[in-house]
Amino acid sequence: MGHRPFRAFALALMLVAPVGRASAAPADSFGIWRNPGGSVHIRAERCGQAMCGTVVWASDKAKADARRGGTDPLIGTQLFRDFRPQQPNVWRGRVFVPDIGKTFSGTVRLIDADHLEGKGCLIGGIGCRSQVWTRLP
Rank of each mutant, 00 (worst) to 15 (best):
A27Q: 09
D65P: 06
R81Y: 07
G124M: 10
G76H: 04
A58S: 08
P18N: 04
V95A: 03
G127V: 04
F80D: 03
A22E: 08
L136M: 07
V108S: 05
F9C: 08
Q78C: 10
W33S: 03
C52F: 00
I111V: 15
P26Q: 08
F83D: 00
G76I: 07
G124S: 07
T54C: 01
G2S: 00
R34A: 12
V56G: 03
K102G: 03
H3Y: 11
D72I: 07
P85R: 04
S105W: 11
H3Q: 12
E117A: 11
A62V: 06
S29V: 01
Q131G: 05
A44Y: 04
R4M: 13
A10Y: 10
S39H: 12
K102Y: 07
D112Q: 02
F6E: 05
G2C: 02
S105M: 12
P18D: 07
P73Q: 10
I100S: 06
G37L: 13
P88Q: 12
E45R: 11
M1C: 07
W91Q: 00
K102R: 15
A12P: 07
I111A: 11
I75E: 08
D65E: 13
L122G: 14
D99S: 09
S105V: 13
I126F: 13
K61I: 13
V16S: 10
D114E: 12
R67Y: 06
D72F: 09
M1E: 11
D60C: 04
R67C: 10
R84W: 09
F9H: 11
R92T: 12
P36N: 01
F83P: 01
I123V: 15
D72Q: 13
A12D: 11
H115M: 02
R7H: 12
G70Y: 04
V97F: 00
I126W: 11
R68Y: 01
A17G: 06
L116W: 10
K61T: 14
A62W: 10
R109G: 06
V132T: 15
F104W: 00
V56F: 02
Q131E: 15
G70E: 00
D60I: 12
R7T: 13
G118W: 01
L15S: 14
L110E: 10
K119W: 03
T103W: 03
F30M: 08
N89L: 15
F80V: 13
S130V: 03
F30V: 06
A17W: 06
Q78A: 14
A8N: 11
W133M: 11
I32P: 01
D112M: 03
H115G: 00
R67V: 13
R46M: 03
A44C: 08
L110T: 04
P26I: 07
C121N: 07
S39E: 14
L11F: 14
V55S: 00
A64W: 06
M14K: 15
L13M: 14
H3S: 14
A50L: 06
R109E: 15
R67S: 13
P88A: 10
C47H: 07
P88G: 09
K63V: 13
V40S: 05
A25P: 01
L122F: 08
G37C: 11
G38V: 08
A17T: 15
G118M: 11
E117G: 02
S39N: 08
I111W: 03
A58I: 02
F30C: 03
G120D: 03
G38K: 01
H3M: 15
C52K: 00
V55H: 01
G124N: 05
G106R: 00
